[in-house]
Each structure stands twice: as structure tokens, then as C-alpha cells.
Simulated assay, not measured.
Amino acid sequence: MTDKVLILGGSGRVGSCVAADLANHTEAEITITGRHLASSQLISDRLGSQVQFQVLDLAETEKLEDAIASSNLVIHCAGPFHYRDANVLRTCIQKGVNYLDVSDHPSFTRKAVASRDDAIAAGVTAIVNTGIFPGISNSMVRHDVEQFDEPERIHLSYVVAGSGGAGITVMRTTFLGLQRPFEAWIDGKWQMVKPYSNRETIAFPAPYNRLGVYWFDMPEAFTLAETFPVKTVITKFGTLPDFYNHLTWSVSHWWPASWLRNPNVIEFLAHVSHRMTRVTDKFTGIGVAIRSEVTGRKNGNVARYCSTLVHENTAVAAGIGTGSLAQLLLDGKLKKPGVWPLEQALPTDLFEQTMQSRGVKIQRGWMP
């Protein structure tokens, strides 16, 4: 029988890229959902006959349950996840349907993994934080950690050019991440860190080269610390062109906290930023760069290992990250009942195979 995949929020930029990756690499029947018919129907038409569109709002509980029950795999792409509960995941567990999402906020990750025991009992494999970052970045770190006898420190940096091709949602996510300080695992203890602080210049591969990155609240900040026996996990983010970083820093440090917790202010900032990137995208592109650096002990000596990845389109890269996992689940090559962040579920050998099949190149090596 043909596998049926339901992509919630599949008419968005990232969701449609996930659908495109699945259409290219599987024979599954794919249904993408959205709240509006006209533009979403155009997207499904562009993706071909393998992809169908269904009007669906996540608030329509019965309709959502029916759609999940008739699927073999559900992929949740309807962000931002700051506002989401884990109802879709819980419904998948109740219906015995495997689950993926592109969630990118720690609050949602914690809600999701709370259902781990229920998923194990139901035999459901659920993986959260897939995509590009978090997602492919987590698997890069896992590979790097595995090179050490005693890993001690993880430094994970990301940079996105302009909008990243991901639309206004990525703008909302950025400003929502400025709302409050967060915990980071530093020197073996949890410490509070202010978002968009501690600028650090990182050497990314061309064409990004040396760029500034800042502390940013990501699920990896705690999932990597829980997964690997390290003393420090650093997660930093930056944008191109660099003046966006300075604008974001000023919002984070100078604007009253009450403003940043006002949904209307977040929407205003997101829309203004999106209009700005429509101009700058023409000059900067919409790509992404990731750099993973792990420090630890190898054969008794202190050593550093680094992995880097560059992709010309951030949304397409996210589609590859999630689509490759979906393919593994549909093919029966990945099965781990429970709810897991990516680095706890995907073995490195399978990660390597899927990246090679999609032509994604990751540069790696020991550092001086």
C-alpha cells in the first residue's frame, strides 16, 4: 500500500520544501494543509500530482484527528512553535501514527518529550527539532562528539542570509527568542544568559567568511547538554547583512521587556524585518551556514574537531533535513519508539547516507 504523509502547515515555505523533498525521494501520497485555499492550491499544483492540498486549521479538532488517523506519518510544520501545545503529537500517539516536526523553541521541546513514555507504549516514533537548525546541525554535532574519547565542549553557530527564504515566520521566531533570558550549560552548571549578547566573530566557509554571532535560545542548548557528557554547550546565531545583528541587539538590550512580550509588537517587528529582507535578499542571498566545533580529549590529548555546512537556501535545507528523516521512517530504516530530539534518534551512519543522497556536503576535520 502507498504511504500517506500529512504535512501540517505544508503550504508554508518550509513545509512546501519538506513536501518537495519527499516527492523527489519517495512514492508517498502527500497531503499539505493550510488555512487558505487559493495560494495553497497553487503550491500543491506546482509540486505535482503526488501532492494534494487540504484546508485545515489546527483548531478544528475532529477534522485534524480524522486527517491524522488516515496517515502513516504526520509532519508538523505549522510554526512558530512558541505558541504551540503538543496536541498534534498526543493525537498521533493516540492514533498510532509516527510524527516529525520542525519545532525550534525549547518550551515546545519540553512539552513534546513529556509524552515519551506514552509514545513508547504506543510503538510510535516521534522526532522533534528536525530541519536545518535545529535538525541537521544536531547530527553534525553528534558526528563530531563521536570522534572523542572525552568530549568536553560544544560550540554551535548558525548564520542566515536575509530571510533565509523562509518567509515571515522566521522573523517572528527571531524576535520571540528575545523575550527573556534563558539557561545555558556552561562549565558544568546551568547559568542564565541574555539573548543576543556576547557577540563573537566566527570563521564560516565562503561566501560567509567571518561573521558575528550572539547567544540565542535554541532547543539544542539543553538537548545537547542532556545527550552528551560535556561541560559546556554554546548556541549562537547571527544574520547577514551584519547591520541586522546590530538592530536586533538594540531591540534585545534597549527595548522594555514588556514590549517584547506584546504579540502586536512582535508582529510589527516581524513585518518590518520581512519588508527589509525583500530588498537585501537580492544582495545577500537566502542561504545558511552552520559550524559545529567540539573540544575534548583524544588519545589523552586536548583536541578540537570542526564541521561546517553551507547551503544556498535555508528553507530548502530545512526541507532536506526533515524530508530525509521522513524517508527513513517510511522505509522502515529508522524506528525508535518514544519522543526524541534528533541527536538521540538518528544514528550517524543513516545521517551520512541521507546527506550524500541529496548532495549535501559537510566539511570536517581536526583543528590545530
Score class of each variant (00 low, 15 high):
Q41S: 15
T61C: 09
A315V: 11
G323N: 00
A289N: 07
A206I: 08
Y208D: 07
V294R: 02
C306V: 15
S115I: 07
E343N: 11
R35I: 09
V310F: 03
V5S: 15
F182S: 00
T235L: 08
K282W: 15
P195E: 00
D149N: 14
V265M: 07
R278F: 11
S16N: 12
A317G: 06
Q353G: 06
I93C: 10
I68M: 00
V302E: 13
T173F: 03
I7E: 10
L56A: 12
G165S: 14
N264M: 12
F175W: 14
K194T: 10
I136C: 05
T277V: 07
K95S: 08
F283G: 01
V18T: 07
Y208N: 02
T280M: 14
A315S: 15
W185K: 04
S44P: 07
T232A: 04
A315P: 02
L73T: 04
Q179A: 10
L334G: 01
V5M: 06
V251P: 01
E267I: 04
C92F: 04
G135H: 06
V233A: 08
R84V: 11
S258T: 04
V360G: 10
A257Y: 06
S107M: 01
L342M: 08
L330V: 12
F351E: 00
T348W: 05
H155T: 11
